[in-house]
Nucleic acid binder design. Structure first.
Length: 1156
RNA sequence: CCGGAUGUGGUGAAAUUGGUAGACACGUCAGACUUAGGAUCUGAUGCCGUAAGGUGUGGGGGUUCGAGUCCCUCCAUCCGGACCA
């Protein structure tokens, strides 16, 4: 009887499905085991052979654990929301719901063919309301929670409100900063809007502002990888950064716990390192540097006294050289100090008292305004008595003009006005704010939440940097600020303005990715200087894209002798380098050492760098110019997308305040839309659905309640799906506590490293959050993580030259001539084109009498991808190639080698466009699922990336056939169908020999340990070895084959199930309820040491480390005995050549080495 | 650029703790059986060499009786870098 895998696999897949053999119960006396594959996105391209790699590994493991007596949860489902479906809809007019459903259907049918043991009754789909209701529900919990820094966990926001009502938000130590801190009384006086804004600063899901890649031409926001060289991938339109209101998850609050949690999980060190780096915790200090105008003092015009305050000095110097009166202005200010009037006004304006945030003494384009409401562009000036002075008037007018040019409204009061008629002044300011607000249609929320790296409520002109190396403070030779830094505009001098503007424009056109990937050093000098607070040294301030706005303060101090990037920067721009680390710095390369003894470093001279760090930080804190600071590279996770195909937010807006919907209003279903074009003002498509957006006001006031139109990102649904599998149909909860407690953590999670920092961190955070709320009992979702390698494509290339020729009786023609690889290599190396040209003439000449042939000399053969499915190894199926691509190459000519066309080979990413994808369906059809599964495993270690080559699959298929022949004699003559086993069945009930038992038990040990440690490739090879050995021994004994079959069942379930049934003398599947007859419920064979014990060992005998001989010795020989035996060995004697060995090394059970 | 990983025959790979490098397969070559072979079986196969032998795990250096494995250094390739999932 032959191994008819098609019938066998079909039969058993059907039987498994009909009998629901993979259905898993949440209630079992067996120990539980949760094996999970990373959530697949059902892409339109379907599965290629790379995808199932991890699924097969986890399937083998699941089946293995089941045989070992575990209740195994092994589910599968779909991360069905996502950008590709939306993009497909825009391009092809197919609704995402439709294409996604079709993709899922295809996906499922592909999976089914491979014979996985998923419990399909637990399938989940993130785009179904029954699922995303709970995604929205969890979002609401995040929205309604804050992170308590004392308890280091999430708590309900109601607790925070209570705290504010009772105690306000006052600092335990340090100064009370208006705008940041407030008293309980102030809290109570806040408007609803103000309260909402304050709370928004703490919610775990919050609204803020963020930059996106905006493409005006496409009217849409683009993903980073949709932007190439500053233009959109589709269409090549320009892309710029645009600031939009966005939702965020405050994952940064969990940074420390995400780091600590890594100690509790079994992830690879590489994975832990990647997450650690991503979180990027660093300890350092923030240090303020005062701004300074320039290196050499300008001659003092008119004998005016020059300010001693470098801050103000700076603005004098950066002004137009003709503006000598500005000096006067700052001279005046310098004398003035905060006036009584200013103080009065400040007390009335600060802290949002007029519904807008105010800054005092804030620098704008080289001017320092007394008060500025940035959000409404309103400037308040309080003047002394000297505004009648002629020149001051000129200046004031010029200034007003200037401010107007920048769209700033200026309001001017005298000191007396403010002091004597404060209310009037306040009212005037109030109405101006209103006017301005109308004018700009901005909201209070805009200004409130815009980042303010300068510190709240204080407009002093200083540059705050973050550094992890405060010890290098005296090695600072320049400052670098991010191009987006708030100070850029303010500090840039007129001379440098053009250069800076050009540079900013250049940076704006680049993606963050490109900025970080850029090798070339770029930057521009602002013209401004900062002062080193310790020695007063002037430090030039530069702008460069290698400093990112989002990290630290968006400004760094450049220490070229100690930092590689700073060093390159200094070299490139010829900035002199200060050496503070003596001979540690060679002048060639930076040395980031911590061990050097500091030089040129004032009060820390002679100190070791690592010791100096603390000294400097303390000094900085003492001086009040900065503080110790822990920083994280990780940023809060952007949680909204300007897209259609995602979860709608359960949020409505009223008067610019976000209100959560109640649980009873969930799910907020995604409304149907036919046209998915973007909404106005960079909003997502949902913004076009007026009737959906606008809701009647709950209090009956009519209009004004609008739905949130953003949708959630792809990782929303996938951040908690592992919990839904535990209780997929629960309509009352996202997952019952009972189910969550029963299944607990995922015991084994398999997926690619591409999720290392995205999905894995988010889902870990959500788990911690749900844990904080007391909804689940684990705060780490995945106990053990295995990363599968990527299967790359092995592309095949054909090479052609375009040849022009003419025959004697017709006009000239042009044709493509494909050259086999050999000729291509010859052309590339020897340049023997004449030879090739003759070949071409020869080929063409067979058909027509040639008159003239013209090969474009100097042109190399052009490689073109060939579909790997029409190439056998490297040999091209020319006939198939001619039919390929609707006959594009039907008329091409071929120059062969040995009658074959040999293709070139290159390893690339597997993708349709490279014609190197291999569909598992085809392989399953040709060789069967069992062969396919085992071959995928046989390719190499699961964790390793490797190129796919279908060639080797034959070997695995041969193995299964050989294995089959241990049970059945394959007859050459076809036997009548349905006859079942007859005399062809070879299995006997004879007692096995010691040798046979040794083979079996060696295999049990090997397979068990290999499966346990995911070494499936060596596992497959162990099956091959066992089968080869048993074939040699002509072993057909039940007592050997049945345990072997159980070992094989996780790897090749179909053939095992069939042979198991045959062994049980039941040629057809057991009937209903006959589950115990299935191999799935067999018990795993137990390894017994006694069958594999050895008494002797063939030792390699090495002379000076080189193996020269072999001696078989008993395992219990002593060193003396070994020396004696070894010295008598003729080969050893030959190598000794009469000499006495210096030493004989004998390692029991390993080797013997004779040292001469 | 930053971070991670990987480099072993013609190919995929094995060598679990520093101890016989290349198991198991693919491919290739030779042979057997056969009307036939893209079936099956047998043998050979890292490289140089008729052989003895030499040489060999990306390159260079080191530790060791002994290094694919440990250390230093250089190089190459692949993956990820926050709106692809």
């Amino acid at each position: 009887m032959e191994y008819n895998f098609r019938d066998i696999e079909k039969k058993w897949q059907q039987w498994w499905s009909e009998n629901k053999v993979y259905k898993v119960s949440n209630d079992s006396p067996k120990p539980k085991c949760y094996v999970l594959d990373m959530f697949p996105y059902p892409s339109g391209a379907g599965l290629h052979v790379g995808h199932p790699l991890g699924y097969i590994a986890s399937d083998i493991y699941s089946r293995y654990k089941r045989l070992k007596g575990f209740n195994v949860l092994h589910p599968m489902g779909y991360d069905a929301f996502g950008l590709p479906a939306e993009q497909y809809a825009i391009e092809h007019g197919i609704h995402p719901a439709v294409s996604t459903a079709a993709n899922i259907k295809n996906f499922r049918s592909q999976l089914d063919k491979i014979g996985f043991c998923y419990d399909w009754d637990r399938e989940v789909n993130t785009s179904k309301p029954g699922y995303y209701k709970w995604t929205q529900w969890i979002f609401l919990q995040l929205f309604n929670s804050y992170f308590c820094h004392t308890e280091k966990k999430a708590l309900p926001i109601s607790k925070l409100i209570k705290k504010y009502e009772e105690k306000g938000a006052v600092p335990k130590t340090g100064e009370f900063i208006p705008g940041k801190h407030f008293t309980a009384e102030q809290w109570k006086a806040f408007s609803e809007k103000e309260k909402a804004d304050v709370l928004m600063r703490r919610r775990l899901a919050y609204c803020g502002y963020g930059e996106v890649n905006w493409c005006e031409a496409l009217g849409t926001v683009l993903a980073n990888d949709e932007v190439v060289n500053g233009v959109s991938e589709r269409g090549g339109h320009p892309v710029v950064k645009k600031t939009l209101r966005q939702w965020y998850l405050r994952i940064t609050e969990y940074a420390d716990r995400l780091l600590e949690g890594l100690d509790k999980v079994d992830f690879s060190d590489a994975m832990k390192e990647m997450q650690t780096n991503w979180i990027g915790k660093s300890t350092g200090a923030e240090i303020d540097f005062k701004l300074w105008g320039g290196a050499s003092p300008l001659p003092s015009p008119g004998g005016e006294e020059i300010s001693q305050d470098p801050v103000k000095e700076k603005f004098f110097r950066t002004a137009d050289s003709g503006n000598w009166h500005i000096l006067k202005k700052y001279g005046r200010e310098n004398r003035k100090d905060p006036t009584e009037a200013e103080d009065i006004l400040w007390q009335r304006l600060r802290n949002n008292q007029l519904g807008a945030k105010v800054r005092r003494q804030h620098a704008i384009q080289g001017y320092i305004a007394d008060f500025v409401f940035l959000e409404v562009k309103l400037v308040i000036e309080v003047d002394g008595e000297y505004h009648n002075e002629e020149e001051q008037k000129i200046y004031d007018d010029a200034r007003t003009k200037f401010l107007n040019e920048f769209g700033l409204q200026l309001l001017r009061f005298t000191n007396e006005e403010v002091i004597s008629n404060t209310e009037k002044v306040i009212n005037e300011i109030k109405s101006s704010i209103e006017q301005q607000r109308q004018k700009f249609k901005t909201t209070a929320a805009d200004g409130e939440l815009s980042p303010s790296p300068q510190g709240e409520g204080r407009g002093e002109a200083k540059l705050r940097v973050y550094t992890t190396r405060p010890d290098t403070i005296f090695g600072v030779d320049f400052m670098v600020i991010a191009p987006e830094h708030e100070l850029v505009e303010e500090i840039t001098t007129d001379e440098q303005k053009q250069a800076v503007d050009e540079y900013i424009a250049y940076v704006k056109s680049r993606s963050e990715r490109e900025r970080m990937a850029e090798k070339k050093i770029s930057g521009v000098f602002t013209g401004a200087y900062a002062l080193n607070p310790f020695n007063g040294r002037e430090i030039p301030i530069w702008i460069s894209e290698y400093v990112l706005a989002g990290y630290g303060t968006g400004a760094i101090m450049g220490v070229p002798c100690g930092d590689e990037r700073d060093h390159r920067f200094a070299k490139h721009f010829n900035i002199p380098i200060t050496n503070i680390i003596g001979e540690y710095y060679t002048g060639e390369d930076a040395n980031p050492t911590y061990d050097a003894v500091l030089e040129n470093s004032d009060f820390i001279n002679g100190m070791k760098m690592k010791d100096a760090i603390d000294v400097v930080v303390r000094k900085v804190e003492e001086m009040g110019i900065g503080q110790r600071k822990v920083n994280y590279k990780m940023r809060d996770a952007a949680f909204s997308r300007q897209r259609y195909w995602g979860e709608p937010f359960p949020i409505v807006w009223k008067n610019e305040i976000a209100y959560p919907l109640s649980e009873s209003e969930l799910p907020v279903e995604l409304p149907h839309m036919d046209d998915l074009k973007p909404g106005p003002d960079a909003q997502g498509p949902l913004a076009n659905l007026t009737e959906w957006i606008n809701l009647p006001s709950p209090s009956g006031e009519g209009l004004g309640v609008r739905r949130e139109v953003n949708t959630m990102p792809g990782y929303a649904g996938s951040s908690w799906y592992f919990l839904r599998y535990m209780d997929p149909d629960n309509e009352k909860e996202f997952c019952s506590r009972k189910a969550a407690d029963y299944w607990g953590q995922v015991d084994l999670y398999i997926g690619g490293t591409e999720h290392a920092v995205g999905h894995l961190l988010y889902s870990r955070m959500w788990t911690k959050f749900l844990f904080d709320l007391g909804l689940i009992e684990h705060d780490e979702p995945y106990k053990r993580l295995v990363n599968q390698g990527m299967i790359q494509g092995s592309s095949r290339f054909a090479y052609f030259l375009t040849v022009n020729y003419s025959s004697l009786n017709s006009e000239s023609k042009s044709t493509r001539v494909f050259l086999s690889k050999k000729w291509v290599d010859i052309i590339e190396s020897d340049n023997t084109q004449k030879f090739i040209s003759e070949k071409i003439s020869e080929v063409l000449g067979k058909k027509i009498a040639l008159h003239h042939v013209d090969v474009s000399y100097g042109e190399k053969p052009i490689p073109t991808h060939v579909d790997v499915n029409i190439v056998d190894g490297v040999e091209l199926d020319i006939e198939a190639f001619k039919r390929w691509r609707s006959g594009e190459y039907a008329n091409a000519e071929f120059i062969l080698e040995d009658g074959k066309y040999i293709c070139g080979v290159e390893t690339e990413k597997m993708s349709k466009s490279k014609f190197n994808t291999v569909n598992p369906d085809d392989l399953v059809m040709k060789y069967g699922a069992d062969t396919f599964r085992m071959y995928e495993m046989f390719l190499g270690p699961v964790e390793m990336s490797k190129p796919w080559d279908t060639k080797g699959i034959e070997g695995v298929h041969r193995f299964l056939k050989k294995f089959w022949r241990l049970f059945f004699k394959e007859s050459n003559s076809p036997s009548p169908q349905g006859e079942g086993r007859g005399e062809a069945f070879l299995v006997t009930n004879d007692e096995p020999t010691a040798e046979e038992l040794k083979v079996l038990h060696n295999t049990i040990r090997k397979i068990e340990s290999d499966t346990e440690r995911f070494s499936f490739n060596t596992g497959v090879s162990a099956f091959m070895i066992a089968t080869n050995e048993l074939t040699d021994l002509k072993c057909h004994k039940r007592k050997i084959l049945e345990p072997l079959l159980i070992l094989l069942a996780p790897y090749a379930p179909h053939i095992s199930e069939e042979l198991y049934a045959q062994l049980r003398n039941s040629p057809s599947p057991p009937g209903e309820g006959g589950g115990e007859a299935s191999i799935l419920n067999a018990s795993y064979p137990v390894f017994e040491d006694k069958y594999v014990k050895e008494t002797t060992k063939a030792y390699p005998v090495a002379i000076n480390g080189k193996t020269r001989s072999e001696l078989t010795l008993s395992l219990d020989v002593t060193q003396e005995q070994v020396e004696q035996i070894v010295l008598q060995d003729p080969i050893v004697q030959k190598w000794l050549d009469g000499k006495t060995p210096k030493k004989i090394i004998y390692v029991k059970n390993k080797m013997i080495n004779v040292v001469i």
